[in-house]
Design a protein around this nucleic acid. Structure first.
Lengths: 99, 99
DNA sequence: GCGCTAATTAGCGTCAATGCTAAATAACAA
DNA sequence: TTGTTATTTAGCATTGACGCTAATTAGCGC
């Protein structure tokens, strides 16, 4: 699970995920959208793949990356579990404190 | 925001957050629960503080750490925004997923 | 095969993260 | 002030992340 948060810890990788929301994009298209070199982007893709946040598909010479919503959803669930904000472990300190 | 995910990227820090769900704990109590030295734990606390995930309060000689649910909640919202899962139930059960 | 395009891997430098021990600070008691 | 306890800061070493350029792999067309 550390891989997921590690992947989410970089602004470029977060932006890649955002762009992938609209649909799959090729490595080149993604690389073109950021002010870093293609090899650097390729490494970011690898990091996202290792975290299972994206998946790669070959289409001839180009490789298309696609969002993997499942794992991201698990990450959300984990953050919620970590903070106990899923509605079950509600602390008994009622928020009846008016200000 | 990178700070939040960076803080979440370490298993010890995630475990600290989990323990803090039950209520505030002192640095010593937290340090005692993990197989790393106190200075190392202190640095983890600093990382979590920088990310605004926890807050510190002095109680005499001891320092008590308390969960800051607000920022964690924002992190959840951000992950949801990143993946387009902001609570809208756009994907019905008719997904036709085959592999 | 050769060339072309797309993307990755290899190699290198720099900076940040992680862990430790030892020393310093903070609060309290005597 | 001195001593004791709790916690952090300082200093050091190791490891991993991030970025680049150059070279390599992968597929397609000739």
């Amino acid at each position: 699970m550390s891989d997921v948060f590690q992947a989410l810890a970089h602004p470029v990788r977060r932006a890649v995920l955002k762009r992938l929301r609209s649909g799959p994009l090729s490595a080149g298209e993604l690389a073109d959208a950021f002010p870093v070199s293609k090899p650097t982007m390729s490494r970011h893709f690898q990091t996202l793949k290792d975290a299972n946040l994206i998946r790669a598909e070959r289409s001839g010479t180009t490789i298309r990356y696609r969002l993997n919503v499942t794992v991201a959803d698990e990450a959300i669930a984990m953050v919620m579990d970590m903070l106990g904000r899923d509605g079950r472990d509600e602390d008994d300190s009622s928020e009846g404190n008016s200000t």
